[in-house]
Amino acid sequence: MEFRPCIDLHDGKVKQIVGSTLGHKDQAVVENFTSEHDSTYFAQLFANDKLTGGHVIMLGSGNEEAAIRALNAYPNGLQIGGGITADNAKIYIDAGASHVIVTSYIFHDGKLDMEHLQKLIAAVGKDKLVIDLSCRARDGKWFVVTDKWTKFSDFEVNATSIKMMENYCDELLIHAVDVEGKRSGMQEGLVADLAKWTSIPTTYAGGVRSIEDLKLFETIGNNKLHVTIGSALDIFGGDLSYEDVVAYCKE
């Protein structure tokens, strides 16, 4: 189990928000925290702690410059997602990203677009691609949600679909959308399912808020999954010590 840190960018600033409130015209974005530090500060912090596989997420437009500064500050140490397409993916790889992360570009109109996926692989290579299968529960099953997590796709996340998607990427990133950013505890059922289904490096994000949660995550995930923690960390306005998380996961 590795700790995979995150730098979420909104309006050019490092923030922690409730991701499920993005993209709604009649609902304000819920912000948990806005940092006084820029993206390079956190990139350098993660570099100093030798944390790899973390991700920079651009939440909407206007974040490109801050994202590239972070990638420049920690070459090959961070992944990047948010608005990634076959046309711009190589720009971010050339700027220092180890991988690009994609969801909505390959999932639109409720379906998986294999043509777009193949274009991305042609642009940067399978070994530079992370597929984000951010999902929500519906009728007792997990389904990928897209367009800032506002739309359900018809793509069910299960053992069969995970096995298929692993053929097209280097890693998987799974946001548990219903709990992400809420510091309310992880979706234990999803963690258990992912531990059974995945065979490539997979990072889970959503709801982890304490060292006790980390221990439970490690147990349920059979020490097989990596973990991202955002809003709960003290560096992002929460109560959980970033240093304690780094130390625990390195042990």
Rank of each mutant, 00 (worst) to 15 (best):
L71G: 04
I131L: 15
D127H: 15
C135E: 01
E2Y: 15
V30K: 14
S153C: 01
A205C: 12
E2M: 13
G237V: 04
A247Y: 02
K119T: 04
T40Y: 03
Y248W: 13
T203N: 01
K163E: 14
L120M: 12
M114T: 08
D127G: 07
V208K: 10
V246H: 05
S35M: 05
A122Y: 03
I162P: 12
N222G: 06
F42H: 00
R136E: 09
K25P: 07
N32S: 09
L78Q: 09
E166K: 08
K151Y: 02
A247T: 14
S184D: 08
G230P: 10
G19V: 15
T85F: 00
A70N: 04
L59T: 11
I91M: 14
G238E: 08
H37N: 14
E115N: 11
A66M: 03
R136P: 06
E65C: 03
I91T: 11
T52E: 12
Q118C: 03
Y242E: 01
V56Y: 03
V246M: 01
L59C: 10
A67P: 05
R209L: 10
Q118S: 11
N222E: 12
C169Q: 05
K128S: 03
H175G: 12
S104Q: 03
A97W: 05
I131H: 13
G60R: 01
T160A: 14
G62N: 09
D38H: 11
Q79R: 12
D147V: 04
T198H: 06
G81F: 00
T40D: 07
E115C: 05
S184Y: 00
A70I: 04
K15W: 00
V245S: 05
L194V: 02
D26F: 13
G189C: 10
R183K: 14
G53K: 06
D170W: 09
E188L: 07
N32C: 03
Y105L: 03
K196H: 11
T198K: 05
D38L: 02
D147I: 00
H226C: 09
Q79V: 02
K90H: 07
W197G: 13
Y105Q: 02
V130R: 04
K250G: 11
H108L: 13
T203S: 13
F46W: 11
E2W: 08
I57S: 10
Y74R: 02
S241Y: 07
K25E: 08
A43L: 01
V157M: 07
I93W: 03
I93G: 09
D213V: 09
A123S: 14
V145G: 00
G140N: 08
I211S: 09
A70C: 08
Y168C: 13
E156V: 15
F46S: 11
T52C: 01
T34H: 00
E188G: 13
R183N: 15
L120D: 07
W142K: 05
D127M: 02
N167I: 02
G185A: 09
H37D: 08
Y41H: 15
L216W: 05
A159Y: 00
I101D: 00
E218R: 13
S98C: 03
V179W: 10
I68T: 14
G230W: 03
I84T: 01
T203G: 10
S241C: 08
L190M: 09
D87N: 12
L9R: 10
F155K: 06
Y168M: 07
L190P: 07
Y92I: 02
G237H: 04
